[in-house]
Structure formats: structure tokens, C-alpha cells
Design a protein around this nucleic acid. Structure first.
Lengths: 276, 276
DNA sequence: TTGACACATGACTGATTAGTCATTAGTATA
DNA sequence: TATACTAATGACTAATCAGTCATGTGTCAA
């Protein structure tokens, strides 16, 4: 598909030269298409970057959710969290570079909001991992632990695009789990108040109707499977006012949850419903 | 001084709107000067950002060097490192924001080189702190510890520009020292090879003649004290070929070392000399 | 062959940018 | 007052950018 190709080539350029410094011209040249053709797929440069973020983050979020909820990994949750994250970084080094180095410096409010939604979701996941895997930890230390874990992901994630640093995924994750366990067991002086994440987690986790609509529309363009496609379209219609019964909605969400490509979308929809 | 004022106002705008998104126009308007006047002080936008980086980083590097070499803090080195860094962030939140969020996304090669020089210097300092304060630590873990410490500084540094997070400097540093100590004592699985930092530290620590000249020229414009000024000018002349005797040079460097504003410049000069 | 329609093009617009330079204002010296 | 010199101005240039749109072009069905 055209959109996919543009996103891939654009991502390469963004990673190499930066988002601001990459022009639509350069992207279309690299794709071998015209400028007009670009605007048939995306209505602006901002929509492009938003699509890229959504595509990768929803994939990563869905993978993490799956790994963390898999009973097979019950005693191993933190390792799984690190592993899925870093495996994604390894596979998509270009995205990792954009995500770690550039995104924090962007000022588009819509983009910031979107990233905060994903970040809030991941924060919640990490909290639940800590509660399950380190239940004996002092509750005052939990926010700190979450902060440290996210810091580890961010900092050690940079290794994947430093050329002279070749990383063994398993060793890296094992080492980070060890570090986290040690801190969970021994650290006693909290920096962050327990409610530090409260605002971001509770207020942001539910998307607005507009945000949800945008995600759905994007997924409709991304997805090929007819069942998933119709499910997405019906839910979009429901949001627009064509009321559906609760049983139908629940079934449609089950459809979406069954595929890794739409699992995150389903959970986002559910969070919206709950917030209403 | 005009330069100082431009740097301050520009830094405010950079922190608020980003470096790329801030135009010279905006800066001159905020300063109440004309566009031409800007170019009397700086020959380009890049020179401006470089001056800002140099100004703050050399100050911070000098403060850290002083604190770490002060015998009074011998058992307390890591705390001092964190403290000086975060105190600087607290005082100069605008710079902290620029430094943490934006600098990593910049692609100007000269700027990258400059930041790597400072980074290499700080890395060396952290290594020496670890050697002195945690001498019993497994030598294979040292690179990891350095990486973790720098990560702590970066991640917890972000707290200083999150509005709803008010931080007590002493508590923060105490907590981070505790975390670092715990990891130094118990962590046993290294991620980074001991030579991980080797390249950056050994190859980058000595500036090129041109870099050194630029720093000297910048300091000449910044400094008022006549003794320091003359010392800088004589050393610049020496670099240009007007040979001075070793005793004179050493004396001039002593002059520079006596002021926090030029201490880092002096050590940079010494590193250049050693590398010749 | 014709008409219809989506897909694709790239010259174009208007806005914005960093950086320049002829000109002017201000100030100190003679 | 006249001269010389520096500091400051802002209109200007040339380049680049995102985004548009009149003009094709290829591909169907009739």
C-alpha cells in the first residue's frame, strides 16, 4: 500500500535528518512519487508523523499487553516488558531514534496529547507489573520504581542506535531486571509522591471522541481483514450516532481484540466508553 | 552586555517554542533590537546556540570540578555531583529544558562535537567519583554505573520543568545517591563492556586547535576582569604562533583556573597541550 | 471509439526564513 | 562646529517550505 511505503521512507529520513529538517519534497523523491501524490495519502505533514507514531505505538502497546497478560510469563513480567520494548526498538531502529530523540522536542499539541495517552497507558502497565511481581515493595516507592523503569527503557534504548554498541537482547533485559529488583528490594527513599502519575494516568487515559475517531479512521485505512474492517466501520458509525446495542458493540470489540493490529484500538475504545 | 541579553532572551524562546521554531526575528523583537544588531553580536543562529551551550556547560563543568575536587566533600562526591547538576537545572530551567529535550535531536555536526566533548568530560568525572567513592565495586560494572548515573541525571532532571512536580533538591540527591549505592553494591550483571566509553572519553576529550580557539575567543568576549582577559588574549596569541615560555603559560593557566568562569577553559587548554 | 473517473503530476502560491547591506543615528574627538 | 568612527537600522535578497490545483494519463465499461 502507498501509505505504508511513504511512512517507511519518511521514517528513514526523519531518523537520519530529523523531522523538521526533512521536507515533503525529499520524502516524495525518495518514494519516487510526486508531491501531489503525497497529499492524496496524507492531508499534511503532521498527519504523517501522527500516523507513524500511532502505527508503531499501537503495535508496541498491543504486544506488551499481550506479553504481560500471558499466564505463561506470570513470574517474568518485567523481563517481558523490557524484552518486548527493546525487541521493537531493535526491529525498528529508525522509529526508536525518532521516538527517543525527537518526539520529546515536538510542540504540536495534538501530537503531545497522543504521546501522553500512550505514555499514560504504559505507566499503568508498569504499575500493574510492579504490584504483581514485587508485591512486598513499599507502596511509597512505587512511583519511583515506575519512573526508574521508564528511564531504563529510554536510556538503554539509545544503545540500539549507537553503532559501536552491539547489544544482546537477553543479556540487556536480564541485567535491567536485576537492577530493578535490587532497587525494589533495597531502595527506601522516595523522590516522587505516590500521586505523581495520577494526573497523567487518570485524566489522560480516556481519549476524547475526536481522538478515538481519528484512531479508528486511521486503522480503517491500515487494515485489510474484512471482519476487522467492518467492525471498525460499525464502531465509527456508532460514534457518529447510528446507535448499536451493547451486545453488538461488545462483540465488535471482541473481534478487534483478537488481532494484535487492533487490540490496542479496542482497549482505547473501551476506555472511552467507560469514561462516558 | 548585549550578547548576554540576547542569549538570555533567546534561551527563553528556545525553551518555550523550540530552537528550530524560533526565528531571529522573534528574538530581536523580544530584545527590542533590530535584526542587524543581532548579527553584530553573533555571526549566525548556530553561533548563538553554540554560545549558549558553551556558556552554561562550561559553568556547570567548572562547578562540578570544583565541588568534586574539594576535600571537604571527599566522602560525599556523588551527592555533590548530583547536587551541582540539579542546582544548575533549577537555576536555569530554560537551559535544562533545551539541553535535555532538544539538544539530542540536533544535527549540526559542530554542535554535536561540542556536546560530546562536554559529555566525555563529565563521563570521566563520574568514573573518578566511582573509583574513589565505591572502590570495592566490580570493575566490570563501572561502565554500567556511569551510564545509570548519567541516566538518573537526565531523567530526574526532567522533573525541574514539569509544573506539578516540585522537587526538594536535597531529598532528590539523597534518594539518587541511595539508589546508586545500592546498585553499586548489589548489581552484578553488566550490560556495557568496560571499553564502552573508551572511544568517547579518550578520543574526544582533547579539543582540536580550532575548537580551543573558538572557546577562547568566546570567553574573551564574555569576560570583564582585565587579568583574565589578558591571560586569554596571551594564550590565544600563543596558539597563533607567538610562542611563550612554559612558565608563562603555566602562570596564565593558573590565572584562569582561579575563577569559576574560566576554570573549565583552563582545563580544556591543558588537555589540548597534553595531546600535542 | 468514446466517455467517465480515479490516480497522478509538478509548476505554482504565499508565507517564512536566515542573512546582507546601503543608509542613518549617535557619539566622541579635534 | 566639523570630522571621523562606531552602532544600529530595516528593507531587501535568495532560498526553502507546506500545501494547491489546473492539467494530464491510464484504465475501465459501454
Amino acid at each position: 500500500m502507498k501509505k505504508q511505503m511513504i511512512m517507511e521512507k519518511a521514517l528513514e529520513l526523519f531518523a537520519k535528518n530529523g523531522f523538521e529538517a526533512t521536507s515533503i519534497q525529499q520524502i516524495t523523491e525518495k518514494c519516487g512519487i510526486s508531491k501531489g501524490a503525497f497529499y492524496l495519502s496524507f492531508k499534511s505533514k503532521d498527519e504523517l508523523i501522527l500516523s507513524i507514531i500511532d502505527h508503531f505505538m499501537s503495535t508496541i502497546a498491543a504486544e506488551i499487553e499481550r506479553a504481560v497478560n500471558d499466564d505463561q510469563h506470570a513470574g517474568d513480567l518485567l523481563y517481558q516488558y523490557y524484552f518486548v520494548f527493546f525487541r521493537a526498538y531493535e526491529r525498528h531502529a529508525d522509529f526508536a531514534k525518532l521516538f527517543i530523540k525527537e518526539l520529546s522536542a515536538m510542540f504540536n499539541p495534538e501530537l503531545i496529547e497522543r504521546i501522553l495517552v500512550y505514555h499514560a497507558h504504559l505507566t499503568k502497565v508498569v504499575f500493574s507489573i510492579i504490584e504483581r511481581q514485587f508485591p512486598q515493595t513499599n507502596s511509597k516507592m512505587r512511583a519511583d520504581l515506575v519512573f526508574v523503569i521508564q528511564g531504563f527503557v529510554k536510556n538503554y534504548g539509545e544503545l540500539f542506535f549507537i553503532d559501536h554498541a552491539s547489544v544482546d537482547l537477553h543479556e540487556l533485559c536480564t541485567a535491567l531486571v536485576e537492577k530493578t529488583e535490587i532497587l525494589a528490594r533495597h531502595a527506601a527513599i522516595p523522590v516522587l509522591a505516590p500521586e505523581f502519575f495520577a494526573m497523567s494516568v487518570h485524566e489522560r487515559i480516556a481519549p476524547t471522541k475526536e481522538q478515538l475517531m481519528e484512531v479508528l479512521m486511521r486503522k480503517i485505512n491500515e487494515i485489510d481483514d474484512p471482519i476487522l474492517l467492518e467492525s471498525l466501520e460499525l464502531l465509527t458509525g456508532h460514534l457518529r450516532g447510528a446507535a448499536l446495542s451493547p451486545a453488538i458493540i461488545q462483540g465488535l470489540l471482541k473481534n478487534l481484540s483478537s488481532s494484535p493490529h487492533t487490540k490496542w484500538t479496542a482497549s482505547l475504545y473501551q476506555k472511552y466508553e467507560v469514561s462516558q
